[in-house]
């Protein structure tokens, strides 16, 4: 596959794509939790189009060589934070379901943690 962008430009496109993708996902989450907080002022579809275009450009850019690192305590702490955040968001969105809401959010939180640890330790095995 021929690369459209190389070197610094490829890195810039990759960086821009990552930043805008995370921004879009955070805005989407905020809109889901508090309806209207974003959509009253911004049209998220325009941002989605921009993210998709940058994603396509990133695919056709020179890939970055990344060193595999061993998982540290920081990574595990990050996974715990993500699992708690996932649990809280699902609890908030399903609060009307009563006890079922607790069951769904706990299972989702545990799933997030286990899957993340699985991916992390799988990477560790590749490093070894």
């Amino acid at each position: 596959m021929k690369n459209i962008f190389k070197g610094n430009i490829a890195l810039t496109v990759n960086h821009l794509f990552q930043v805008l993708l995370v921004t879009y996902l955070v805005l989407l989450l905020a809109e889901e939790l508090w309806a209207g907080v974003v959509s009253n002022y911004l049209n998220l579809n325009y941002m989605l189009a921009l993210v998709i275009i940058l994603g396509i450009l990133d695919v056709f850019s020179e890939p970055q060589i990344k060193k595999q690192k061993k998982a540290t305590k920081k990574d595990y702490l990050f996974i715990i934070i993500l699992a708690i955040a996932g649990f809280l968001i699902i609890k908030l969105k399903t609060s009307s379901l009563g006890w079922l809401s607790w069951a769904i959010s706990i299972i989702a939180g545990v799933l997030i943690a286990l899957l993340s640890i699985l991916v992390l330790e799988d990477n560790d095995n590749e490093v070894e």
């Binding site: 070197g7 610094n8 490829a10 890195l11 810039t12 960086h15 821009l16 930043v19 805008l20 995370v22 921004t23 955070v26 805005l27 905020a30 907080v37 974003v38 009253n40 002022y41 911004l42």
Partner: peptide
């Protein structure tokens, strides 16, 4: 090693900061 120039890095980081700042202001 290719690196993103500092100015461009700052501009890229300024985009989400501007969006979040705008949303906090209007909300």
């Amino acid at each position: 090693k290719p690196r993103v120039p500092l100015l461009i890095k700052l501009i890229i980081i300024a985009i989400p900061l501007f969006i979040f700042g705008y949303l906090i202001t209007v909300n």
